[in-house]
Nucleic acid binder design. Sequence first.
DNA 1: AAGATTCGCAACCGCCCTTGC
DNA 2: AGCAAGGGCGGTTGCGAATCT
Length: 274
Amino acid sequence: MGRAPCCDKANVKRGPWSPEEDTTLKDYIRRHGTVSNWISLPQKAGLKRCGKSCRLRWLNYLRPDIKHGGYSEEEDNIICTLYKNIGSRQSLITSLFYVIRWSTIASHLPGRTDNDVKNYWNTKLKKKLMAPATTTPSKPNYLLNTNSNNQIHQQLTSFSSPSLTDPPPLTNLYATTPEMDNHIQVSDFSYSPDFGSDNQKQDSNLVYELGSLTSQAISNLYYPNYYYFTSSTTWSNDNATIDNGSGASGEEYDSLFKEFGFDPSSSSDYFWIA
DNA sequence: AAGATTCGCAACCGCCCTTGC
DNA sequence: AGCAAGGGCGGTTGCGAATCT
């Protein structure tokens, strides 16, 4: 048995708000101040709308401090950075449980609403960010360290409390210029501190998510073209934790990494995605 | 010019969380 | 503790506008 609806759907108006309705709602809120009960507001204000609809209209459109459109480059950067950072912290690598807190991101952008930021991301920024690295390389195409795994691990761990404006240098990693074909190259192995921090279940479709959701979840903050995965050491542990020790997900990982030529039995391998 | 397709975004849906009883 | 109601939020939809063919 489902939850009772918040209003009588048959007797409320739906669809776009008219200027008259906007005025009615704004006038009511101006006269009464902060709304303590949105469900009862429509009746009091004389609106044939669902209370939730009124709340949404006010919060996303009618509030006096709302900004619409015209995102600046700085705002773009903040959204992209927070998307990566918050996304990787609040979720895991599975598509089913991957949830971005748009309200958290919007709270860093005065005048922007979660809905607005979400729409902006889905229609513009996502495409911009997902565009092939060859067209807009934000960083040089290198980040490989074939024999100082611990060094990478330490550096990534230091990202856990990052500054938004001061990315750490990669100078202590020695660089190569790997082929970037197929967006994935397997070489050595690194570790992302955020990976596997949540107690969430594995999705058997994970193997198909590597290039998108997975990479988002494990990307680091400053180098959006590069993504790190857990090592076999940490990774085995992560899997056990994530999957309540069943070990089933470990097999999925193994097959996933083997698919890209990675040797799960190696303790020193990592791979990156560009 | 007109039909098809894509884009942008306001609005809705439904689930989860919080709060009060 | 358990329940119900309201609030909050992410995902999705619908539709008008813009662009393409």
